[in-house]
């Protein structure tokens, strides 16, 4: 490669890297504003909009329960199907319960709930806020002295974080039960024994690390969706691009954060 080609390559990498850093910086600012207004809203006026937050919790979280239940049941079943032959080779078929429970509570519950919510809630938030930008609604809010972060982002952040954690609890239990279905009806084992093995093998740590992670995932996905939505430029096409980008980036950052957290928990706890 010639010197000029190297220079071009470096320039490309540099400008991409700069763009990424700028993006993370913008996300950081939004996150800081959201936290600031949340804390302020808890202690002084203007208060957090409780009815709006509740509305968002129903819209983003409660309505996602059926899809989460379906997906997690299947994931639990898949896991049991995949593990059974391997464990049977070692004569450890009774360990299906242990492996399914730990995988569910530590990893798959939080991760898959967050990914389903990214598609379910994240895309909706990005499209909604983006449409508000196009319709000058955000400009109208700002110029009437109502901070869009306090008014729109804070209720969504609170709702998304709480509901991701709550849905993860549902996902953990349903996913483990999904493994139990295969254990009972395909492997023809006793359900009580499955239940007792699950309860015995799970540690408080397994449940807690999963829930901490899911809170972080929820925060990431809602922050990215709000950031993309509020940053829309260029009409309907811009709304579409923002929606796509928010889903893709959320999934990427959630998995990256998952890797970082799991590594940290591995070494520290």
């Amino acid at each position: 490669m010639s010197a000029a080609a190297w220079t071009r390559l470096l320039e490309r990498v540099g400008s991409q890297g700069e763009g990424f850093l700028a993006y993370m910086g913008g996300l950081g600012y939004l996150g800081w504003d959201a936290l600031k207004f949340t804390v302020l809203g808890l202690v002084v006026r203007p208060r957090i909009k409780a009815d709006e937050t509740f509305f968002q919790m129903v819209r983003l979280g409660v309505r996602a329960i059926p899809i989460i239940v379906l997906v997690q049941t299947f994931v639990g079943m898949i896991l049991a199907f995949q593990l059974a032959p391997v464990l049977a080779d070692y004569g450890q078929l009774d360990k299906v319960a242990t492996v399914v429970a730990i995988a569910m509570f530590r990893e798959l519950g939080p991760l898959i709930s967050a990914i389903v919510l990214t598609g379910f809630a994240g895309a909706a938030i990005a499209a909604e806020l983006g449409t508000m930008v196009v319709g000058e609604e955000i400009a109208a809010l700002r110029t009437s002295g109502i901070h869009p972060v306090r008014f729109l982002v804070v209720p969504r952040v609170i709702a998304a974080v709480l509901m991701t954690v709550a849905l993860t609890v549902v996902a953990d239990i349903v996913g483990t039960a999904g493994g139990g279905i295969v254990d009972r009806f395909i492997l023809l084992r006793d359900s009580w024994e499955y239940y007792h093995t699950v309860v015995q093998s799970l540690l408080v740590k397994d449940v807690l690390t999963g829930l901490i992670k899911s809170g972080v995932f929820g925060f990431l996905l809602v922050l990215i969706s709000c950031y993309e939505g509020l940053g829309v430029a260029g009409g309907a096409g811009g709304v579409g691009r923002a929606t796509t980008r928010s889903v893709v980036l959320s999934i990427f950052l959630i998995i990256a954060a998952d890797c970082a957290f799991t590594a940290a928990f591995y070494f520290l706890w």
Binding site: M132, G135, E136, E137, A139, A140, S144, G145, H147
Partner: peptide
């Protein structure tokens, strides 16, 4: 400052081209 600007903004009203109602 943003807080001061918000206070100034309460002294004026704006009619946007599209109306910009909160949908």
């Amino acid at each position: 400052s943003p807080e001061r600007l918000d206070r100034i903004r309460r002294r004026f009203g704006i009619l946007f081209q599209s109306g910009a109602l909160y949908s």
